[in-house]
Simulated assay, not measured.
Amino acid sequence: MIEQGFVYSGNPARVVFGFGTTAALPEEMARLGTRRALILTTPAQEDAGQKLADLLGETAVGVFPGAVMHTPVDVSDLAADRARQIKADVVVAIGGGSTTGLGKAIALRTGLPQIVLPTTYAGSEMTPILGETSGGQKRTQTTAKVLPQVVIYDVEHTMGLPVALSGASGINAIAHAVEALYAREANPVISLMAAEGIGALARGLPAIAQDPANRKARADALYGAWLCGICLGSVGMALHHKLCHTLGGSFDLPHAETHTLILPHALAYNAPAAPEAMARLRTVLGADPALALFDLGRAVGAPASLAALGMPADGIARAVDLALSNPYWNPRPLERDALTALIQRAHAGAPPLAA
């Protein structure tokens, strides 16, 4: 029963989901009316970009294998210049959040449409959010200008994703949906997607850890990541994402692994102020959702602590200062001592504890 009114805004995107769906790329380019694709990858995935170029033939006019973590502004500017030089009329990004972020940055600068082929569970392809790093700080903005027009989910691209990266990337996706449940703009439609997405990932990720070739588990995880990405793209962010943006941009920590470590602690912090969200989370994660997420990280082989990621202990105070400056809306007020304790526990690899 709906007791209160709500606002739901659906972001436009065409989704092609399944096994072997990469073959649809030429058709999707034609559907957009485009004929000159700039293909984006990270340096490690350049071969995947070249395979797309081979598939597209003469409609592929360049491969830019320079996407890197946290989307540095100078890389974005360089890639946008490349797109202009070769007169690209569409950007095709294949990879995880770093590559998707670069595609968004190019779209913001040039107005080009985007087609994204995710190879991880990052979910960024479903959001109108762009985060770019400059001068040691990551700044985010939300604009429909960076929304991809087409997303091709091909489960085959995730079959070789290493177990540890699969787990961290998947828990990163779960974080999108967890915060959507208690976001200021939360609504019942997004909450349904959030629970479905979290449940699919909570099923799929441990099965992938046991058998990386489990096709059903891989499909569950990618499906869950899609839904969780929709959640992030439809409502606002809160403490968890603020902390992860702060830590990633300021200490150059890996994106998905940082989300994996912070999520249980941020959820425990907000639990007292979000009873409805916690009740829904218990239906898919069990009696103690924060501890369940902490245990899930261990089960999938994710790093155990911020210290293991390379964050110095003397950076905790700076991280708290940054989190308190220009904070995101949060259901529980931000308290310096409690935030310090939260980051200290994540730094040490201790289990979450409600403050």
Rank of each mutant, 00 (worst) to 15 (best):
T59A: 12
A83E: 12
P275K: 08
D321Y: 10
L309Q: 06
I171D: 12
I174E: 02
E46Q: 15
A225M: 07
L293G: 03
C244E: 10
A256E: 13
Y328H: 14
D321N: 14
L205A: 02
A341N: 10
A273W: 04
P254W: 14
G57N: 07
K145F: 11
G96N: 04
V68W: 01
L78R: 15
H347N: 11
G248K: 01
T110Q: 04
N172Y: 13
T127Q: 09
P188N: 13
M237C: 14
E28D: 12
L296P: 02
I262W: 02
A30G: 13
P206Y: 08
V320D: 02
D295T: 12
Q85R: 15
A313L: 13
A93H: 02
G10E: 15
E257I: 07
G136T: 04
H176M: 14
V151I: 14
V178L: 02
H70Y: 09
L324H: 11
M29D: 07
I94H: 02
V146N: 01
P327L: 11
D77F: 08
P327K: 08
A302F: 03
A266N: 02
V155D: 07
A319E: 12
N187M: 02
R336L: 03
G315M: 08
G10Q: 14
A225S: 12
S169T: 11
L56H: 14
E335D: 14
A323S: 14
L261E: 13
H265W: 06
G131H: 04
L306Q: 12
G95M: 06
V163Y: 05
H245M: 07
I208H: 01
P212C: 06
V235P: 00
V75G: 03
S250L: 15
A273C: 04
V150W: 05
T42W: 04
G10W: 10
I262Y: 03
E185R: 06
V320S: 09
R36L: 08
